[in-house]
Design a binder for these strands. Structure first.
Lengths: 133, 133
DNA sequence: TTAAGTGTTCTAGTTGATCTAGAACAGTTG
DNA sequence: CAACTGTTCTAGATCAACTAGAACACTTAA
């Protein structure tokens, strides 16, 4: 699995790692059972502290994206989030409301925002569709 | 204009104020020319430091949502963002990609995500449509 | 003109998140 | 057993966020 981060970004390093892994899964370029780079290996690759990688992996496990097995490594789960239905919907609604509000203030119309989302969804599913085809 | 924040939220207070104002505009419950609460008044209402309100208002002015007139107060502008077209699209795409990826990991399908966005857009435009009707 | 209210701009300090550094311990694999 | 893996500490540096207090400049209306 290829994970890239931007050291110059204001976003915390561990969050960038979390998002990179989640994106890889959403795009289909990584799937259930795949082994992630070890804590020390990824830290070396990204030139960051191993503890920062640990923190990212902790978040990913909390979100049920991976499981960590001591001595063995970290692996992708197939399961989604463990959250209950209502809480999941609330979280998604908050995420989209925030993005929609900001987009609105950037001057886009609802139709333009809808089209842009569809484009994002298409991009995320691109690799998955190729494999199924 | 009614502005509410959650002191317990992990989100910075000044960002909560920024988002509250932007949401009020997007929902149509506040419009061009409306005067915002003074720095000291809003600080008193929200029980936060005046400097925190100043910071929020600075961001809102930078985003062309308000204008600040020394001695007079802060007022809503009708204009949208000043950013160039390409940069605006890039920002919207980033916002939506993030929301889409996270929603995907919450276990929702693209169709569900699209429907949820439409609901958010409807909610944001609800008040505006009522006035036009 | 003046008083009250407004935004503007400082300095100073506290708190907490982030990240680095180094070390030790524990489980897994071949 | 050796080499890998994750796990868990302590300690410290740096920075963003927030608070506190003050002083200054401008606008408005009495």
């Amino acid at each position: 699995m290829i994970i890239r981060i931007d050291p110059a970004s204001p976003e915390p390093l561990f969050e960038q790692v979390v998002f990179a892994v989640k994106t890889a899964v959403a795009k289909g370029s990584a799937k259930e059972g795949d082994k992630l780079p070890s804590v020390r290996e990824l830290a070396r690759e990204l030139a960051i502290n191993p503890n920062t990688v640990v923190r990212a992996y902790e978040v990913l496990e909390r979100d049920s994206v991976i499981v960590r097995r001591q001595g063995a490594g970290c692996f992708l789960t197939g399961r989604g989030s463990d959250l209950a239905g209502v809480e999941r919907k609330r979280q998604m609604h908050d995420l989209l409301r925030r993005a929609a509000t900001e987009s609105f203030h950037l001057g886009f119309t609802p139709k333009e925002i809808e089209r842009a989302l569809q484009k994002c969804l298409d991009e995320l599913q691109f690799d998955t569709k190729r494999k199924k085809a």
